[in-house]
Simulated assay, not measured.
Amino acid sequence: MGIYCCSYDLLRPVLFPFFAALLLVGSSLGRADSDFFDPTRVTQLSWRPRAFLYKRFLSYDECDHLMTLAKDKLEKSMVADNESGKSVMSEVRTSSGMFLEKRQDEVIARIEKRIAAWTFLPEENGESMQILHYELGEKYEPHFDYFHDQTNQQLGGHRVATVLMYLSNVQKGGETIFPNSEGKLSQLKNDTWSDCAKNGYAVKPEKGDALLFFSLHLDATTDPKSLHGSCPVIEGEKWSATKWIHVRSFDKPEKNRSSDACEDENVLCPQWAAAGECAKNPLYMVGSKDSLGFCRKSCNVCSL
């Protein structure tokens, strides 16, 4: 249980207002059998960024089931515009994909519970699972999973964690790469790796494995070392499933807040303000003319 417990302890400072929900998840899933969550299959890949690999997270039958659900529903993948937050087409991302519904069937519901048990993050904070398909030459240029636009921040806040599940093997290429990782120089690579993968710390897609990485530091600030991408497929094809998890509930819309109210929305606001986050992360802490921030009291910007 070492990896499981240690991961939980290290995550405590970044668990935001959903801590009570997190405890409920832990208590209800803590009774799970070893085949539901097996911490012996988890390896820490990196600490900057925080990244972990779970071998055989999905069974082959689960992988095949997800691919079957998606095959006749794939559309050109989109990216989020940095200014508007809207989904737009871009050559940065050339895959095709589709979104499944939450708890669409028993298999998906079981996988979502397993993700919550592994990450200690509530199911309601997760987006619907996205299935992606990469054909020859298709890729996703390095990008961040956290947001700077208010539209997306209001939908559950930043993405704090990403679980990337590999649904197929890839003969060559298709690696997940972290160009800014501190471990990129120490990772040995031979000719089985693509040239793209040699530009950072990389993870080979293997059917059933899952990669968990965090986009925020333990103090809730964004982590630039979480920059990541998908290398072009050189031989074969790549199938994957992505679960993005936010700092707040993604299922429930943000409550309306009065501009006259002088309050913090998070118990950690005074701590973050003391660390200088009012200036470093003003959109979240202070807000803008279009959206109130979440730590206005601690940042001393309330109307008097």
Rank of each mutant, 00 (worst) to 15 (best):
F99S: 00
W118G: 09
Q154W: 13
S28C: 08
L211Q: 06
D105K: 04
V286T: 07
E182K: 10
E263G: 05
F99Y: 11
G97N: 15
N190L: 05
K289N: 15
H158S: 09
G200C: 03
K113W: 01
R248L: 11
V301W: 07
S27H: 12
H148G: 04
D223I: 01
K184E: 13
Q104N: 05
W118I: 10
D35G: 10
P224C: 11
Q154F: 10
N152F: 13
F19W: 14
I111S: 05
C269Y: 02
E235D: 03
K86M: 07
D38R: 04
S194A: 13
T221R: 02
P142W: 11
L227K: 14
W47Q: 15
L164K: 03
G137C: 10
H133G: 05
T43L: 05
G126W: 15
A116G: 03
G137K: 08
D223Q: 00
W193H: 01
A51D: 00
P39D: 01
E206F: 12
K172N: 04
G236R: 00
G174W: 05
V107G: 06
E254P: 02
P122Y: 13
K255W: 07
E254M: 08
G97R: 13
A161H: 13
G200V: 04
S226R: 02
V233M: 08
M165C: 10
D251V: 15
I3F: 11
S34E: 06
N125H: 07
Y134A: 04
D219M: 03
D219N: 12
L268C: 08
K184C: 13
E83V: 12
E235K: 15
K184V: 10
L74R: 12
M98Q: 01
S59W: 05
H246F: 09
T221C: 05
G229Q: 03
P179K: 00
Q150T: 10
P49V: 07
D81K: 14
K73M: 13
S27F: 14
Q171R: 10
E135W: 12
G229D: 04
L292P: 00
S59G: 09
I115S: 14
S230D: 03
Q171S: 09
A80Y: 15
T221H: 04
D38L: 07
I108V: 14
V160P: 00
K204M: 10
K204N: 13
L218P: 02
S95L: 06
E138I: 01
A273Q: 06
G208W: 03
Y201P: 00
T221S: 15
M1S: 08
M67Q: 01
M129A: 03
M165L: 05
Y140D: 08
S87T: 14
G174E: 08
L58W: 07
E127V: 10
A32I: 13
A241P: 07
Y146E: 02
L23K: 12
R50V: 05
E254G: 02
N199D: 03
P122M: 11
D209G: 04
R110M: 01
L227P: 04
N256R: 15
H133C: 12
E265R: 09
G200N: 06
K204I: 14
R296Q: 06
A51H: 04
C231Q: 11
W118Y: 15
Y54K: 02
V247H: 08
